[in-house]
Structure formats: C-alpha cells, structure tokens
C-alpha cells in the first residue's frame, strides 16, 4: 500500500512542481542567510545553516497542505475510498500508508536542502568558511525537521480526512499548522491582565513552544519532551483520522 502511494507520488507531475518550488524557495532563503553574513552587515553569532533551519515554518505552511490535502479528501470525492474499504485493507493501514508516503517525501525534500551548503562551499572555494558545513548544527536542524514533520504531516492527513473538498482540507490544515507552530509562542507573549499569574497554563504553553524546540535541536541538545510531544500527537492524530475514515465509509 505504501509502495503504491509512493509510486503515485513518484509519477505525479504535481510532486515535481511542489519539489521544484520548495527547492527554489529554500535556495533563496539560504542565499539570503548567506548574504546577511556578507560585508555591510554586522558579524552574526549564528551560522547561515542555523538561520536557515529557523525558517522551517515557512515551507511547512505551504508544503504540508499541498502534499497532504488531496490524500484522503480526493479519494472521498471520487468515491474510491468506499471501493478501497471493500478490499481487505483496513482503515488503519490506509491512513498509515498515506502518512508514510507523504512523510517520506517531506523528509526527502529537506534532505535535499543539505546540498545547498555543499554547493555554497563549492561555489565560494577559498573564500568560503569550513563552518558552512558545520555538521552538528545541520544534523540538529534536520533532526528537528524530521521529528516535528511527523506531526505536521499527520495534521495535514487529519485535515484531509475531515472533508471532501481538497481546498477546504488545505485551508484547514494550514490553520491547524498555524495554531500548532505559532500559538505557543504567541500566547506566552500575551499577559493575562497585569498581576495575574497562571503558572500551570504558562507551563503548558512552555511545553508547546515549537520555536524553542527548534532552537534546542539546532544547538545539538536533545530533550525528551519535544520527542514525546510530536510522536504521541502524531499517533493521536493518525488514530483519529482512522476513526474518521472508518465512520465515513
């Protein structure tokens, strides 16, 4: 089933369009990060790769909905979902295979971006800096993208199972991603009335701060909390999606 999904992705023209767009945008972002370290700017404390991975949310917002919005909604719209469910394939394995294919593709795109620092180093030659290829920060950033990506893709699949319309699914997944990625940081900036302390609430928000997770990973610190947060919620969402798929057929 997963192989089938991957094959479908491999031959679909939309996959290549998405990949090319993604790589162009990521290349531009990396170039921007490089330009910021050039003359005319104050010396930076962060490496270009660190800055680059800090921008993870930008491609997530458009890539994940594009990748996942069709997955289940399209099957429902065309009525192929019912046909699929009459075969011995269970709803769980259907959801799992949709998820795995999208997730692998998402990770593959990010792995491709590792070529940018290598290309930059090649292009600059002697004027480059060995720290452009600082593996701990590159691997840390990639590790975060892989761990958090599981949740983001699961959100996309979940949104896609909620509706028959791919556009609505895309919008829904965009909104959910927006909430998950930004709400933790934004809510802690709100002060709930002067002098009102909500320690438990603050702690819960602290737990959800995606950017803080990214920062820790980017510095090579592995904390068990984000791992747990992303994996349990991925499983939860996939479980819920399975329930929805079961109920709709």
């Amino acid at each position: 089933m997963t192989r089938n999904e991957l094959r479908a992705l491999w031959i679909a023209p939309s996959t290549y369009v998405a990949a090319v767009l993604f790589l162009i945008i990521m290349g531009a972002l990396y170039l921007l990060a490089l330009e910021e370290t050039g003359p005319g700017h104050a010396p930076k404390m962060e490496l270009p790769s660190t800055v680059f991975f800090k921008m993870f949310w930008l491609p997530v917002f458009f890539m994940v909905p594009m990748l996942t919005m069709r997955s289940i909604a399209e099957e429902r719209r065309l009525g192929t979902l019912e046909a699929l469910m009459t075969t011995p394939i269970s709803a769980g394995s259907l959801v799992a295979s949709k998820f795995t294919a999208a997730y692998l593709f998402y990770c593959m795109l990010w792995v491709l971006t590792l070529i940018f620092p290598i290309l930059a180093n090649m292009a600059l030659g002697a004027r480059g800096d060995p720290r452009l290829l600082d593996w701990p920060s590159l691997m840390g950033g990639l590790c975060f993208v892989a761990v958090s990506g599981s949740l983001f893709v699961a959100i996309g699949i979940f949104a896609s199972s909620m509706t028959r319309t791919t556009l609505v699914a895309g919008m829904l997944s965009f909104s959910l991603l927006f909430i998950v990625i930004l709400s933790g940081g934004l809510l802690t900036r709100l002060t709930f009335g002067d002098g009102i302390d909500l320690p438990f609430f603050a702690e819960a928000l602290e737990y959800l701060k995606t950017f803080q997770h990214q920062e820790d990973f980017g510095r090579g610190i592995i904390d068990s909390r984000p791992f747990f947060f992303y994996f349990t919620n991925t499983l939860l969402l996939l479980g819920l999606t399975t329930l929805i798929v079961e109920s709709k057929t």
Binding site: P13, T15, Y16, V17, A19, V20, L23, I24, G27, Y30, L31, L34, E35, T37, G38, P39, H41, P43, K44, M45, E46, L47, P48, L112, I115, F116, L119, A120, M122, A123, L124, R127, G128, D129, R131
Partner: peptide, 29 residues
C-alpha cells in the same frame, strides 16, 4: 561570530549553483 568576505559576484555564483538543484529535480520530472 560568523561573517564571509562576499562580493556581489560570489553571491551571484552561489545563486547559479543553487539553481542546479531544482533544475535537476525538474529534469527528472
């Protein structure tokens, strides 16, 4: 701190190299 002695030409060259990757993917497609 990190800074690179980049000239305009350098950035252009890096940009050209960067185009290679999406171009390769597009070609595969």
């Amino acid at each position: 701190t990190f800074s690179l002695p980049l000239a305009k030409d350098d950035l252009r060259r890096v940009g050209l190299y960067f185009v290679l990757l999406p171009a390769f993917v597009a070609l595969t497609g």
